[in-house]
Design a protein around this nucleic acid. Structure first.
Lengths: 329, 329
DNA sequence: ATCTATTATGTTAGCGCTAACATATGACGG
DNA sequence: CCGTCATATGTTAGCGCTAACATAATAGAT
């Protein structure tokens, strides 16, 4: 049978609670007792039961994190930022993946809340009604990340519409007139939709049309390559493509290179995210750099602050973005 | 106060255990009772407490997964494979990141075992002694992934030495003689070291030297680019570089392109992993395709089989690899 | 109607830990 | 040598659920 606290206590000739204290607040027990208990722990090979502890104290050192996809580097980097920060403070991450499905998100939230997590990190501001209700009822800290706006809890992200405007302005300033916006599954990846809205505003203000091409797979190189072909077929006069992300844009850029299409002379290409690849292709990709790891880190820091000081306020953090102009536009 | 099972039971005028059964084995309760209970659950807004359930049953629906890094797409894809398979069966993933540190791995294993996970997935076969002991003592299913060999539990992976040999043979057959192997932090990423050993065997058998360049950052584009420069400085006659992974190799390839160095005429470049980018650069990257998602999926499937049938045997699965010859060699 | 076999539900105890309070131990001044 | 305070340790009860067994309700066979 697996040894329990009581076994350790017996071995060390102390009570169970003393062992518990050695584990949870070592400086409240006398050093000699502590040593005795610690060697007993080693001796019996005790492994702490987190379930029991969390149940008894009604709080766990688990952080529930819910992202829409793991195939997208962006969320990976966010998770990485969360991990690094939380791990240093002794929290574990329980990871959920909604596949951009709000029903699944709701289901995940429900399950995760059942683990009495110390906090909940969730991507985006759009949730199903049931999910909204669950989140509002819950007392623990919540962080909604990536996107800025009307949040239930903490909010760390950037203004996607503004990012869309920023890039559109850049393209218009560069003199491009026939500009297509290309996204992949814009319904699900609605943040790409928000950027498109910003993009369209700027183009319409400049008296231009803002055609949209929505690819039916999620953004990868292959899709970007195919999108380039489609744009050139459907809108042959197109002079610039504003891609919803760098994966698509890089795919198109590399494809253009293979096809002998000159970028930006024949067609300009812009992306979003600022992935490393964009700086290593020739011509370098014009893109908007989003501070992804910083989003994770900052969300984690804010959450930790709240966990340590109950009454830190629910604040909103604009992490901003940077236009990085390469030679692709 | 948060509603508990008992609250639901009272509302539905049944006993707590009946509610528990509706949740855990719905087909053992009469449909009418089930409906009654389900509407009571809705009415009181019951959220299941996983901690209590897992404690009482000494088993949770959490899978502990430990990987060395989240910055490396490879592990992300593995996790993705795990996720997809496990989520369908109602398991959640508790994610740990060792940063290629065996001490940290041990710590993580210890913590994770405290969550009474249904299974443990761990990367690689090398663990600290303490970790080995922990793993051996634990009764639940363990899967060691990525690498093939002497495993404690299930083993799903590929033969890295053989992969190294395979690529080295390819390079030798192509007529390259001065070949450098480039890795990043080969001590920590010891699977890259295993590939190097295979590589060296083949080269030595062919009467060739097998110089190694070990970069001090983990593999990204930038490091690959810098490695190319260093190789050309340190070993100016080098005709081919065998990179430990596709990130490095692509970084070098894109850098060569920027510098006007012709690949493969002046220098040949090979990678490992088969990342999408390799097929989209010009020339296409010669690489070894490792079935990363398949590793995750298969590990998950095997674990699930074991969870459902206690006595499925601990087996070893070679997922293999494929040499994908591009124009870069 | 009676006796099984089957299915549906309930009762009791306890998973391993910690909160909250209770008690013991020692340090120190008067 | 006692009382007070501070520190160290112990006692008790219970977190919310499920395993294991007990009982009730129903169906079918005689």
């Amino acid at each position: 049978m697996k040894p329990t606290l009581t076994d350790v206590a017996r071995e060390a000739r102390v009570s169970a609670i003393t062992v518990s204290r050695v584990l949870n607040s070592p400086d409240t027990v006398r050093p000699e007792t502590r040593v005795k208990v610690e060697s007993a722990i080693d001796k019996v090979g005790y492994v702490r039961n987190m379930l029991a502890g969390s149940l008894a104290s009604a709080s766990s050192r688990v952080i529930a994190a819910i992202v829409p996809s793991l195939s997208n580097v962006v969320f990976i980097e966010v998770i990485n930022g969360l991990q690094n920060e939380f791990e240093r403070h002794g929290y574990q991450i329980l990871l959920g993946n909604t596949d951009y499905d709000l029903e699944r998100e709701c289901q995940l939230v429900r399950t995760f809340l059942g683990w009495s997590p110390a906090a909940l990190i969730i991507t985006g501001l759009r949730h199903s009604d049931a999910c909204q209700r669950l989140l509002k009822q819950w007392e623990g800290p919540i962080a909604e990340i990536m996107e800025l706006g009307e949040a239930i809890g903490l909010n760390v992200g950037l203004d996607h519409a503004e990012a869309g405007r920023c890039m559109a302005r850049h393209l218009v300033e560069r003199g491009y007139r026939r500009i297509v916006y290309v996204a992949a599954q814009i319904e699900r990846d609605y943040r790409a939709g928000l950027r498109y809205q910003g993009h369209r505003e700027v183009l319409q203000a400049a008296g231009l049309e803002a055609p949209l091409l929505d690819m039916d797979q999620l953004g990868q190189f292959e899709t970007g390559a195919r999108a380039l072909d489609q744009v050139l077929t459907l809108h042959p006069n197109t002079r610039a493509i504003h891609f919803a992300n760098d994966d698509l844009a890089s795919g198109a850029l590399l494809h253009a290179h293979r096809q002998g299409i000159h970028v930006p002379q024949e067609i300009a290409i812009a992306g979003f995210n600022g992935l490393p690849i964009g700086r290593h292709v020739t011509p370098r990709l014009t893109t908007i750099v989003s501070p992804r790891e910083a989003i994770g880190r900052m969300a984690a820091q804010q959450i930790i602050a709240r966990l340590e000081d109950e009454h830190a306020p629910h604040s909103s953090h604009d992490v901003g973005f940077t236009l990085s102009v390469g030679e692709s536009t």
